[in-house]
Design a protein around this nucleic acid. Sequence first.
DNA 1: CTAGTCCGGGAAAGGGCTTGCCCAGAACGG
DNA 2: CCGTTCTGGGCAAGCCCTTTCCCGGACTAG
Lengths: 348, 348
Amino acid sequence: MSSERASGAATLEEVAAAAKVSLATASRAINGSARKVNPEYRERVLAAARTLNYSPNLAAQAVAKGGTSTVALVVADISDPYFSSIASGVMRAAEERGLIVTIGSTERRPPRETALVRVLRGQRPRSIILVGSRLAAQESDRELGDELKAFEKAGGRVTMVSQPQLPFRTIDIRNREGAAALAAQLVNHGYRSAAVLTGPADLLTARERATGFADAFAEYGHPIDERWLVPGDFTRDGGFLAAAELRRRGLGEVELIFAVNDVMAVGAMAYLRSTGVRLPEDVAIAGFDDIYSLRDITPALTTVSLPLELIGRKAVELALDDDQDGDSRVPIHGVPVLRESTPLLVHA
Amino acid sequence: MSSERASGAATLEEVAAAAKVSLATASRAINGSARKVNPEYRERVLAAARTLNYSPNLAAQAVAKGGTSTVALVVADISDPYFSSIASGVMRAAEERGLIVTIGSTERRPPRETALVRVLRGQRPRSIILVGSRLAAQESDRELGDELKAFEKAGGRVTMVSQPQLPFRTIDIRNREGAAALAAQLVNHGYRSAAVLTGPADLLTARERATGFADAFAEYGHPIDERWLVPGDFTRDGGFLAAAELRRRGLGEVELIFAVNDVMAVGAMAYLRSTGVRLPEDVAIAGFDDIYSLRDITPALTTVSLPLELIGRKAVELALDDDQDGDSRVPIHGVPVLRESTPLLVHA
DNA sequence: CTAGTCCGGGAAAGGGCTTGCCCAGAACGG
DNA sequence: CCGTTCTGGGCAAGCCCTTTCCCGGACTAG
C-alpha cells in the first residue's frame, strides 16, 4: 500500500522525505524553534505529518534536548479524595504549561516512596512533587533525601507538599494552626472536653493536627486526658476502629471528637451510629480537610477547610517557576468551618 | 572536586569509566540482558553506579529499545472517586509489572480526549487506557478513532473502559443490566413509581443506566412518565440541580428516585433535605457505582456495586496480556445492593 | 595435542530527534 | 554595481542508551 511501515510509528525522517525537505527543516516546522521556516515548506511538512499520522517521539526529543516536559507526582493513595483533589490541581496546572504528569502511589507505605522516586527520577522529569504521606524521622529518610538530592543535583526540582522537615521547596500546610483555630472556635461554642482520633503516631501531618488541636484546647483551659487520644490509621477504617477503641475507654464525658481528617471522622461517625450514639446530640464531631465529596453527609461535618486543588496548583508553580530559591516555602492556611456536627453547646 | 558534571545526571558512560569497564558491560550489568557479566565486573559497575548516584535515563532507553514501559491513562476527572478508584487499580497493576503510569484528565470535556491522546501517544506508551467519559456518536469520535487507530498501527494498544461502541479492547461495564437488576429488586421491594436523574443526555454510560432502569421498571408494570426523567450533569451538583428540577415538576407521586451515579444521588439528597424532604420516609433514593467514600452517608445508599479497583486492574491486564485479540471485551457486572435509602415499601 | 565450542568483553552501529554550523541566495546600502 | 548583512535550508554531530558482531581466551572432546 502506502509507504507506511508495517509496525512502529512514522518517524520525522519519513515525514521529511514525504515533504521533500530535510530532516532539520521538518523538525523546525513541526516542533517550532527559534528559526523560521518558509511557510510553503512548513505547510508541506505539516501536511505530510498529517497524512502519515506522525506523532513526535517524546523520548527521542527528551534525549536530544536533554530534558523532558514531564512532572512526576508521588501520592500515598490516589483513591483517597485528599490526594486525588491535590492531584487534580497538579494535573490542571501542569496541563496549562504543556506538561505531562506521571503519577506514583506509595500505597501508604513510606519506604516505597524512595523506590518510587528512584524509578521516576529515570524519567528526568522537570520536577518531582511529593505529597505528604511521610513519617517523622525515619531511617528511610536518609535514603530518600539522598535520592532527592541527587535528582536536584542533576538539575531536577523537588517540591514537597506538607512535609516541611526536608530541605526542599515546600507547600507548607499549617496543620497546627488550622487545628488550633478549630479548637478555639469549638471552645467558643461551649465545648469543654474533647477526644482526638490522632491517626498514626508517626505520621507528621496527623501528629501536627492532633497536637495543634490538643494544645490549643488545653490552652483554653481544657486539657485533654491522654486516654482520649486514640491513634489509628489515617483512613475511614482507621476512624471506625479508633472510635470503637474510644468507646471502650469510656465515652461518657466526651462532648466532642476531633478526627485528624475527614475520612476518619466519617468512619468514626459510622461506628458511633452503629452503636446507637446520636450525632450530634450525644457527641459532636469534627474533621480536617473539608473533602468535597463529603460535604453532604449528615450531620454536615465541621472541619478545617483546605484548598486542595489550589495546593496542587501551587505545587507545580513552586516546582517550575524560576524566581524561587531551593527551599522556599509557601504557607497554606486552613480555615475552620463549623457545621451541624458541632452545634452550639449550652451547658446546664 | 569529583568527576561529577556540574549539571545533568551521571551517564552510563561515566559509570563505565569509573568502573573501568566498557559501556556495553556497564549496560549489561545494570539493566540486565540475556548475557551474563562477570560477577566481579558487575560488582564494580554497581558500586560505581551507587557512588555516582546513577539513574538510567528512561528516555534514552526508550529510544534505544524502541519502546517504553509506560501506560497512559485518560480519565474524565481524577478527583471524582469513580475515576480515582479505577486509577488506583490501574496503578497497582501497572506497578506490579514495573510500569510507570502517566495520567491525563479531560476535565469532562470529551473533545479534549483527542488532544490528550495525541500528546500521550508521543510517549509511545505500551497502552493507552481510556476510561469512559465519552459521549454517544460525536464528530470528535472520528478524530479520536483515527488517533487511536494510528496508535495501534504503530504497535500500541488501546483499552477502553465502558465504551464498547469503539472497536478496541474494552472492559464492558454492563450498565443496562446492572440498572435493570436494581430496578427488579426495587420493584420487589414494593416500589411502583420512580423518577430517574438521567445525567447528561449524550453521555453513554449515563444513558445506559437510565434506560436500563426505566425499561426494566416499565417491564415490571410501572412505566415511568417522561416528566420524571430529569437530565443534569454527572456530578454532585448535577444531582442537586436535577433534584430541584424534579421537585419543580411535582414530586408528590414519586416513591423512588434513581440517580445514575452515587455522587448525583448524594447531590439530590442534599437538595431534598434542604427543602425538608425526609429520606427515606418521604422518598427513597438509589444510586449507581457504590463509591467507597460514600458508604457511610445516611441513610445508607442503595446502589449498584461496581468493583472499581478491579476494573482498573483488568484494564491493564487486557491492555498488556498477549492472549487477547484486538477487540475482545471483558464484561463486568454490577450487583445491586439494597440499603436503608430504599426501605421495604408497604402499600396501604 | 589439536580442532571445535563457549563464554563474555568491547567496539561500533544504530534509534529518533535537536541544533550548531556552513553556505547559497535574497535584500539592502552606498 | 559591488560588498554586506540577513534569511533560512541542509548537513552532520551529538544526546544516552541497547544490541549486534567480532574476537580472544578458556574449555571440552576426540
